[in-house]
Design a protein around this nucleic acid. Structure first.
Lengths: 372, 372
DNA sequence: GGAAAAATGTGTACCGGTCTACGACATTAC
DNA sequence: GTAATGTCGTAGACCGGTACACATTTTTCC
């Protein structure tokens, strides 16, 4: 038998405001929604009443009739820094409007994601931003039929929903041209397939395809070495061990994601190999960790904030009634840090071999400055 | 003038189910809510109709009359790994129930946080979990009068709301005893005050007080050195530079948070000091970065998952009617990694001085193994 | 000056659920 | 046999907004 809860003050409703201002509910509603057909006098009067009573409309009630003024954001997990950037952009874009962004975790299984999507629909959100969802395209289209939907980070565009995607082809080219430009020839790549991860998407394939294409374009078909694990730290670790097992070992590794690159660094570290002295490492995504001086990972930056802003704008447009699908492809940029450098001609060249030096190995210039 | 949206299929409602099953709305509602007064036959019949039509109740409509089956989670920013852990625990706990967790970003300013809290209230959430909110205690109490509230990560408990907090006293003691046990005497600390950060909370004070107390208990009052900056990477960087400016410089730094510790590492790195060779570093929070081999930070682990689970349980209890306040204090544990070690007797001892070596400096044992 | 048009305010049905009150019927008590 | 009790199902008010239909007033235009 539940105890009696402490007196919860009843909320101020639209009727309270109407009574207090001496007008009808309908009039108050019009003022709130900036509808046509209210005199300035009425507007002032109602606004004053709203202020005096501290009235805020109840989203649930509004949702029942029309808009909930809510944008739902679906993501696998809230701890992913890149997703946080997207949300920052979205929130920024929505700040001007009356809309609010709410986030929901879909987890890494189809079932949990479906529950999360349903939860958003049941809560009558006005639009859904799905960040790298797992669901099959047909399911996404079905959702989009019910609610304005924007899918971010998937390459399978559809006329049923808007999409924003990183140009992974361009980004991967940037990495590869950078590495090859530095003089690398034996470049390994770490990718993943559906068995090992969650993607219902072609992102890893595109990155891997581009890797292979660029290798071939530079007559390096013979040096192609791909480890298929996953885009996680663990996957990177395993993949690196696989690639390092080859002889001769690669002088550079292009990991398909920063997370994987972290695993690569860990594996190299464990193997007593220096970065970039022995092996150069590049990632993809420019996560926050990649920027830390102790990591200093060369990587591809997708401007998550811009993506989030764009997503917000497109969703609001859809809510306003746009029916044609919009598809954005965002051009990424390369961020060069200390994890990549020219391969050293011969391991013995650098004088005394230092065991277990890491990412932050000094460059020649650094050393000169410090010793000088 | 908005274009006509494509035919959006009307949602299945409770009336549809009732009609399809040939019973009243009320009966369907009873079945859904497992209410008293339905025969088994009725239950089966309605359930079949629900399945056949694929009906799901609309949260907005339910919210208007009673429960929204939604728990709102307020956090400054979704990218913070520790918060992600908490959410994981919460979601886990709610998985069994009908409740759904939704996250909302409060940002780092009072005004934006207030807007976020209001947004949750307006959406009729049944309970709010506030993670390290900025708002004044009186404001939190006011919110708690309207909605079951749990505040996580703040030490100012109140009879109006439940709270869960890390035992920062115990955690700080763990760090200090560890450092002192290793032989450190000149231990610096980085803290922050309200001017520099966002906390309306005493966490930094408690950590700083404990630092000072333990120092005094070991007759190290003369060695106390505190830099007051902020719990951010930048704050850690600035604080470290301040502490390193002293002469003699500290042999260990206890940063009040992992984020700050990262800044400390960056500063040491820049100064060409090795970790832990020249300076040991400890953080607090055991973030994911801290565990990475290239960082390997000794830190204090608060079990975020357990905190989240507990939060979920307590909120559900509150929703069920509990009126007495519950306050949990979670005992943290120390995670020792490679960023702390005994101070070396004399800097000249280690042979050739290597500039710019980092966190991952080899320990004596490591070196022996690699050279041997 | 009078009709048409525009502006303004109100009444009220409705959204999709919940929940109380109540009626019909079956069962038990005396 | 009748009253009391219990079980099951339904009708309908209600939550707090929105928006359509309509009445009333004001303005515009010839």
């Amino acid at each position: 038998m539940p105890m009696v809860a402490p007196e919860r003050r009843r909320r101020v409703t639209i009727s309270d405001v109407a009574k207090h201002a001496g007008v009808s509910k309908a009039a108050v509603s019009k003022v709130i929604r900036n509808d046509y057909g209210v005199s300035q006098a009425m507007r002032d009067r109602v606004k004053r009443a709203i202020d005096e009573l501290g009235y805020r409309p109840q989203a649930a009630a509004r949702a029942l009739r029309g808009r909930a003024f809510t944008i739902g954001v679906l993501m696998q997990h809230i701890g992913i820094p890149f997703y946080a950037e997207i949300v920052t952009g979205l929130v920024d874009e929505l700040a001007e409007s009356e809309y609010q962004a709410i986030m929901i975790q879909g987890g890494t299984r189809d079932k949990t994601e479906k529950r999360a999507i349903d939860a958003l629909i049941d809560r009558q959100v006005d639009g859904i931003l799905m960040i790298a969802p797992l669901a099959a395209r047909t399911h996404l289209e079905q959702v989009a039929r019910e609610i304005p939907t924007l899918v971010l980070g998937r390459h399978d565009r559809s006329p049923a929903y808007d999409s924003i995607v990183d140009d992974d082809r361009a980004g991967s080219e940037l990495v590869m041209e950078h590495l090859i430009g530095l003089g690398h020839r034996r470049i390994g790549h770490i990718t993943f397939d559906k068995e090992h991860g969650q993607a219902a998407d072609r992102t890893p394939q595109i990155r891997a395809e581009t890797y292979e294409r660029v290798m071939r374009e530079h007559d390096l078909a013979g040096e192609i070495a791909v480890a298929t694990t996953s885009y996680t730290e663990e996957g990177g670790y395993d993949g690196a061990r696989e690639l390092l097992g080859r002889s001769p070992r690669p002088t550079a590794i292009f990991a398909g994601s920063d997370e994987a690159a972290l695993g690569v660094l860990a594996a190299l570290h464990e193997a007593g190999l220096s970065v970039p002295g022995d092996v150069s490492v590049a990632g993809y995504d420019n996560t926050k960790l990649a920027a830390h001086p102790n990591i200093a990972l060369t990587t591809v930056d997708q401007d998550g904030v811009v993506m989030g802003r764009t997503a917000g704008r497109l969703l609001l447009e859809r809510i306003e009634g746009r029916t044609s699908a919009a598809h954005f492809s965002v051009i990424p940029s390369l961020v060069v840090r200390r994890s990549t450098a020219s391969p050293r001609p011969c391991p013995a060249d650098t004088g005394t071999w230092m065991p277990a030096r890491t990412v932050r190995d000094v460059t020649a210039a650094d050393a000169a400055r410090q010793h000088g």
